[in-house]
């Protein structure tokens, strides 16, 4: 594989991703690993993996994004997740709208213009309640496998109401619900609802312009998408490889930096 023209790396708080794109901006290689504490070592190792898999020994031009973007010394440029997600979503889906990205560390809502430009954005970065970690932590407490989380929640017939959207309070509320004999499924559904309501609040702060797009690792959880649809009345579109959108966007920025324009989806 030597057709790779540009690279993107997204050093997230939960996972680190590398994407390579060929001319026209088509994704042709991707790597994903759980993020490790020694990020710099991991970055070197993953870049070596990318070089080996692609035959491109330089892995350049490279644009870094994500929580640990500043740690990527090999990068030609560093760009925020907002810009990268916008770029990635527009290339993947070919339209503007409202992109909701739920990451491990934060969540964000980006309003995209018809040409994919960022018009406005909101970030939830102080509170864990609207993030993937919120679900991850609580599912661990409830003994449910992360992969099955959404399924289990959707299967619930009843729904427990969680009055707190604060992670700390929610956790004590869950303990007290369990103590009162409420089942795991209704609690899970209530939890998803709380998360989604938090997201909807953010969506409203930038204004909802359909279509609604969902990315980040959480996009693989069907309950989040379904509840988001129920709460907003809009159809939710999930791009292919929702978890890689940031790294993909970074690669597209890298591609532009060498004077190439990404094509259409």
């Amino acid at each position: 594989m030597t057709g790779i023209r540009a690279w993107g790396i997204d050093v997230g708080s939960s996972t680190t991703k590398i994407v390579g794109v060929e001319a026209g901006g088509t994704m042709c290689l991707h790597l994903l690993e759980d993020s490790e504490p020694r990020a710099e070592e991991q970055i070197v190792r993953m870049l070596q993996r990318a070089a080996a898999a692609s035959g491109d020994q330089r892995v350049r031009p490279l644009v870094a994004t994500g929580y640990g973007r500043k740690l990527v010394q090999q990068a030609d440029r560093v760009v925020t997740e907002i810009t990268c997600h916008a770029r990635g979503a527009y290339r993947a889906l070919g339209h503007g709208g409202t992109l909701v990205d739920v990451g491990g560390q934060d969540s964000k809502v980006i309003k995209l213009g018809p040409q994919g430009e960022v018009l406005d954005f909101a970030m939830n970065d102080k509170c864990a309640a609207g993030t993937g970690r919120f679900l991850e932590n609580t599912c661990r407490r409830l003994g449910v496998d992360l992969e099955r989380l959404g399924e289990v929640a959707l299967a619930a017939r009843d729904e427990a109401t969680l009055s707190s959207t604060c992670t700390v309070f929610a956790e004590s509320e869950i303990v007290s619900l369990l103590a009162h004999g409420v089942g795991v499924e209704p609690i899970l559904k209530g939890l998803h609802r709380a998360l989604v309501q938090r997201l909807v609040a953010m969506i409203h702060t930038v204004g909802l312009t359909p279509p609604l797009m969902l990315s980040g690792g959480v996009a693989r959880n069907p309950a989040v998408a379904r509840l988001l649809e129920a709460e907003t009345g809009e159809t939710v579109v999930v791009p292919p490889h929702p978890q890689l959108l940031g790294a993909f966007g970074a690669a597209l920025v890298a591609l532009e930096s060498v004077g190439e324009r990404p094509g259409k989806p």
């Binding site: 009055s163 707190s164 604060c166 309070f169 004590s172 509320e173 303990v175 007290s176």
Partner: peptide, 9 residues
């Protein structure tokens, strides 16, 4: 704002 109220606490 009942979201700032922890019943159990």
């Amino acid at each position: 704002d009942s979201r700032c109220y922890s019943e159990a606490q």
